[in-house]
Design a protein around this nucleic acid. Sequence first.
DNA 1: TTGTAAATTTAGGTATGGCTAAATATTTAT
DNA 2: ATAAATATTTAGCCATACCTAAATTTACAA
Lengths: 273, 273
Amino acid sequence: MAMLSVAPAGYVVSRHALASANKCHSGAFRPTAGAARILHLRLDSVTAKPSEPATTEAVDDYLKAILELSGPEENRVTSNALAGHLGIRPASVTGMLQKLAGQRPSFIRYKKHHGVFLTDTGKHRAMEVIRHHRLLERFLHDVLDFSWDEVHDEAERLEHYISEHLEDRIAAKLGDPDVDPHGHIIPEKNGAAAVRAETVLAKWPCGVPAVISSVSDKDPAALREMKRRGLLPGASLIVEPGTRSASLAVRISGNPPARLSQELASRILVVHR
Amino acid sequence: MAMLSVAPAGYVVSRHALASANKCHSGAFRPTAGAARILHLRLDSVTAKPSEPATTEAVDDYLKAILELSGPEENRVTSNALAGHLGIRPASVTGMLQKLAGQRPSFIRYKKHHGVFLTDTGKHRAMEVIRHHRLLERFLHDVLDFSWDEVHDEAERLEHYISEHLEDRIAAKLGDPDVDPHGHIIPEKNGAAAVRAETVLAKWPCGVPAVISSVSDKDPAALREMKRRGLLPGASLIVEPGTRSASLAVRISGNPPARLSQELASRILVVHR
DNA sequence: TTGTAAATTTAGGTATGGCTAAATATTTAT
DNA sequence: ATAAATATTTAGCCATACCTAAATTTACAA
């Protein structure tokens, strides 16, 4: 159970650009106008504490990507890995990392040629966006009847744009759920999230009883197939000692024995029963 | 009852940038990357009809502003008026209008020094965004317990980012409502919207029975005051022949006689009872 | 240890969308 | 009709964020 140590101290809500943040200055300095919508910023009451920098959609995506790629060991993440994950060029990543690293305070710590990792501030923002995403998935699924293969794309877009207030209302409406429709743990509002010792089904030992803890939400077709075959979070199963090359012999509780492709098995995470 | 004549023909949904729209070309031409999120675009089946240009948040805001400022008579709108309405400099408006007018097909028709007006395509997109806004307000209010002074800001942001699918689910969940919490008519999915002959309460003749049809949703404080005083859409009232200078003597059905500031009365629209 | 392949960064560009200051049109008043 | 006032546009910039091509490191192998 690893908690994220985020300083909940000066965090006072208020996300999204204040209308006045972009007003006209008549003097010599330019008001810093731009195309990207500023997504959140902080008000540290009156005391001029160094507030968390505002983010944009792009910044949020970088922070999430770094968090995901650095794994539980919190390794440094390379520019190339980020570029691959984000679907952009490594050169673009370098530019963004340099800009982010130059901010004070900064979301990231970056050393040329040696990768990047998140500061506590960065981790906090990343967890916040992930909380938005998973709450939205749960909400779209439970309240608005989206199927579990439809929720990801919609949530991926909206996660950047919902206010603190809407986040709270959604959580309340759902009764503060623990997991999203794919079994992923929803971080708490302070950024804390339990970590489960999950294993990819493709690597789970034969004969050992397992329960599906979560599945990847990225591929709608795979999700539809999983649903069809009873491969839902919470389902019990045992991998039989069948061929391990291209497919896996699996006995899913309540279903007839089946064979799963490695492809599908690599999208399913399990824990001990 | 003025209908917006929009060709529902080749409109096939699919808003929001396709993931592949921004992929790498290896050749000489650049893939046109940018900071602003592309909000929608159309697939005209296989037939290569000229599809509606994709919009961004900024473009949506311009289209809405032009629609609102041109009024029911569909007058041309000046750059200055747009600048004032959008809170930006006139020079910035000129730049955007030139860019939009240069698109094929275009959302607007623009003549230097002589203002701008919407094409049918532009009207359609503007109505679509307004539909999003009002559906969202209704949804936030009815389903997520937002108060009627809180819904505007949230809807103003989200209106640009909800998919066609989410729009449909929200409408279904609400039972295809006709009006938002402030009494504004929600356009239909094809862009059509009824037009009511509303009059500002401040200009309503004394002694003539009236019903509140809608109120401005822009000022939360004013909305709270209205609610406190029973000034809700549907409420009946009569303006008494009291002083018309700074305040209005009004008898609101079910409430004791009251005096409204011109300020407040200018935010309330009424129709004949 | 030195070379080379792979990873990463620099340099220079594009597009969006906003700003200022300085022109230029248009409108209004005389 | 014309000058002054007002409105609008042009020209030149800034910031975000992405791209390609050409350096430059770094890391690994001989």
